[in-house]
Amino acid sequence: MAKMRGVTVIDTERCKGCRLCVVACPLNVLALAKSVNRKGYNYAETVLADTCTGCTSCAVVCPDGCITVYRKKEE
């Protein structure tokens, strides 16, 4: 069966570190970074890039529209 591969691109400066994307991800792809952005928020980052299937859950729940998602079927 073909596997879906996804990439999440996070606007880390816009991110407020609310963690809702981390909770929404069914595969624990995302986590809050140890470092902070210019506003002082621990922004969300991708920690398990290879696991992401591009399901968009993180982006859909993001209240600030920080996440862009790409998805491609693995041949």
Binding site: K16, G17, Y41, A59, P63, D64, T68, Y70, K72
Partner: peptide, 22 residues
């Protein structure tokens, strides 16, 4: 391959809402 991005009508101004606000 783009499947989700911030809607175009929502501009780039940072929203004043608290983190996680509905």
């Amino acid at each position: 391959n783009l499947v989700y991005k911030k809607p175009e009508l929502l501009n780039d101004t940072a929203m004043h809402y608290c983190p996680g606000c509905s």
